[in-house]
Every structure is written in structure tokens, then in C-alpha cells.
Design a protein around this nucleic acid. Structure first.
Lengths: 215, 215
DNA sequence: ACCCTGTCAACTGTCGACAGTTGGCAGTTC
DNA sequence: GAACTGCCAACTGTCGACAGTTGACAGGGT
């Protein structure tokens, strides 16, 4: 049996709130009222406060003393700083993946790339889910739990900012190429190239995000 | 006047607890009893719980459902994974510092190096404080707030593991040389070299930590 | 018309108390 | 003597209520 991952109300509240923040159900800039949300979840303010503090530590909420918790909305500076961090982490992960990958890691990466490309050729939009799957597979191949954990947190914050990134065909095409090239470098065990490609890839994504931020 | 940084009891509790954990006043492996500590701090369990959760999110405590919070003690795997993360972050910071540093940044770095060396030549132990000051100055020069924030958290966890790192003269000497070489690379704007030196430096520190972990 | 000030409702910060769970200990059985 | 079972104390998880602070609004003064 699956022993329920979160027994505690606080843990459940974290999951529900995270979902609502990431999907935009709670709009950026809006405030999280403790009593209101607590009633809506059917729990007391205690566990909810812990959940709010937890999400704040993940960067999904910002706390203002005596004012409450807010969903942060992104400034260009935030995006740049965030992508500098993401670049540092994922380039390192790409290097590690190039030197540590097993054959099954490689197969997994190639599978994800192939599925993304099938999807794209079929005219369907490149689902963000597959992009996440690619980066996740790369992290698995890197075998560095701490780095993987931090990347997950950063990606989460990126999701929070992501506007209409999915429906820009040129960008999607470039990303697919980047992924393929990344897999080739990792297959060759070329750490330097893997890092360089990742850096270029994230630089492109960051630029795309900055432009879509200015409408 | 300095408007008190932490008005809230929870914030104060975070500071006090962090200090006690980092100094080893609360020994690794030991348990944090909520009612006991709350009474000792003269506060209620509510704010203390928030403080505990906050420190847990920083990695200074580990939570076990229905059992409480424990100070984690380090395994070699933890140390390696932690240093992989630290290397990713600080190498990136070194690269950025090499390309973004101002002259005042450079002076600051050189000052810290000079003071460290004076201290060392005077036969005094290389204070950990100066090592932190060096890395902090480097982060200032890198001008990447997110990376700096993450490095701070990782360094904190390293402090938690640090045993007798200060009183090993050969290691101290090597570290001083590393720092000097790093400053030269940053002065030259040589990002690649700065990154490489940082990687070697942290690799050495990690190895030292692993050996001192096995007594 | 603008600004300054006093009041007030709403919300966060904090507390004490109750309920549910965990690990350990005593008692029993084989 | 060892293993199993049932009980118990200690502690965490949760709740409802009180206190202090914040931002907004109304009212009066300039």
C-alpha cells in the first residue's frame, strides 16, 4: 500500500496551495488571507500558517510582516537573477550527466526527445510537461541529489513566471534542437560541450521570457 | 536607529536556534523538544514551531513526522553532494565576478587576502571568519543575488559539518594560495581560470572535510 | 481643494489547551 | 530466557481565542 505521503494537514495544505499558486488560480500580486483560506480548506490557521511559511521558503510566496503573504509577480531583474542561478545549476548538472550517465539514462533522454519531436511535428504545441521531463531526466543522469533539489525549486519559480512560452513555434523548434544537441554531447561524454549547450539553451529561454514579459 | 530586524518572536527564535545549532550548542543527532525549548526561550510553541520549520527548510534541522526535529549529522555522501552543489554555485559566482567586478570589489578581495596572510604568518590560526569574508566578497563582486543567497545557505550547512578544519596548517596554506590565485584570475577578468581555480579549491576543502570526518 | 489627525475594522502574531500518535515498559506466555 | 501483547507517559499536531499592528476612512483644520 501507499502510505499516504502527507498525513499532516499542513502537508496537504502545502500541496493544495502550491498547486493553486502555480496554476495561477491564486493570481500573482494577490494576497493570501489566512482565515479565508483556512476556512476554505477546512483547517485551522495553525497548519495553514506553516504551509504558507513553507511555500515562502520555496519562493512561491513573499511574506510581509503584519501584512500577510503575497504571490510575487516578476520583474525583469528577478528573471535575470533567477536564470543566472538556474544556469549555474543546470550547466553543472549537464557536465555531471555527461560523465556519469548510464546507458539507460541515455535511452531515457533520447525517448523524451523523440516524443517531444513527434508531438511538435504533429502540429501540437510542445507541452511544458515534456520540457520538464527532459530536464528531469538530465538531472537523474547527473546523480547529484542536492543540485536536483535546487533545480526543482528554481524550475518551480520559473513556472510561476511562465506566460505564453509554449505557443511560440520558433522558440519551440530551437529548444528541441538544443535538447537533441545536449543529448549528443552527453552521449559523447563531452562535459564542456554539454555545459556550453545548456548555457546557450537557458540563455535563449531567458531572453524569450523577458520579451514575453514586456508583452 | 536600527529598526529591529526581527520584531516577531518567531524571527528571534530563528536567530537564537540557528546560532545554537551552528555552534554545536545543540549537538548533532540530538532532538529539539518543542515545549522544553519554548519554555527556555520564554515563548509559546506556535512561534517556535515556525522557527523550527524555517531552519528545517534551510537544512539545519530535519523533521520526522510525529517525532520532532533533529540536528542532522553528516554522512560522507551528504558532504559530497553538498560540495557538488557548492561547486556549481561558487564556480559560477567566480566566473561572474571575473567579468563584473569593479575596482572596489578587487580592492576588497585583496584586502581580505592580505589580512588572512598576515594572520597566518603571525602564527595564528586562519580564522574561519576570514574564509567566509573572502567568499562573501567574491559573491558581492559577482552581483547575482540569487546565487549569493543559495551559497549562503550551503555554507551554513558546511559550517554545521566543519570539524577541525581550521587547525591544519598545510590545508590553510593551500587555501591562502587558492584565494590569491582566484583574486588574480578575477583581476585579469579570466572567467575560465577563476572557475577552474575555485573548483580545485573546493575540491581540496571537500577532501579535507571527508578525511577529518573519518577522524 | 489639500492635508493632517483620530478612529476603526480587518488581519496577523501569539497563546494556552485538547486530541492523536509514537516509542518504551511492564506483564504474560511459550 | 526470549518474544509477544497491552498499557502508559511524552510529545507532536491541531484548534479556538485574545492581543497588537496596519491600512483605510471620516472628519476637521488650513
Amino acid at each position: 500500500m501507499t502510505p499516504p505521503l502527507h498525513l499532516s494537514l499542513a502537508g496537504q495544505a502545502v500541496d493544495v496551495l502550491r498547486e493553486q499558486v502555480l496554476t495561477g488560480e491564486i493570481a500573482p500580486g494577490s494576497r493570501v488571507n489566512e482565515v479565508e483560506v483556512a476556512q476554505k480548506l477546512g483547517i485551522s490557521r495553525g497548519p495553514l500558517r506553516e504551509a504558507i511559511r513553507h511555500l515562502a521558503s520555496e519562493g512561491l510566496l513573499t511574506l510581509v510582516p503584519h501584512r500577510g503573504a503575497f504571490v510575487p509577480d516578476a520583474t525583469p531583474e528577478d528573471v535575470k537573477a533567477l536564470f543566472e542561478l538556474r544556469t549555474a545549476l543546470e550547466c553543472a548538472a549537464a557536465e555531471l550527466a555527461a560523465s556519469r550517465r548510464t546507458d539507460v539514462d541515455l535511452v531515457r533522454l533520447q525517448e523524451v526527445c523523440a516524443e517531444s519531436r513527434r508531438n511538435y511535428k504533429a502540429g501540437q504545441p510542445f507541452p511544458y510537461r515534456l520540457d520538464l521531463a527532459f530536464h528531469q531526466s538530465l538531472l537523474d543522469a547527473a546523480r547529484s541529489p542536492r543540485i536536483a533539489e535546487q533545480v526543482r525549486l528554481v524550475q518551480q519559480r520559473v513556472v510561476l513566471l511562465r506566460s505564453a512560452l509554449e505557443d511560440d513555434p520558433p522558440h519551440q523548434h530551437a529548444s528541441l534542437d538544443d535538447h537533441d544537441e545536449l543529448v549528443r554531447a552527453i552521449a559523447d561524454g563531452d562535459a564542456a560541450k554539454a555545459s556550453a549547450v545548456m548555457r546557450r539553451h537557458l540563455s535563449r529561454v531567458c531572453a524569450q521570457m523577458l520579451t514575453s514579459l514586456n508583452h
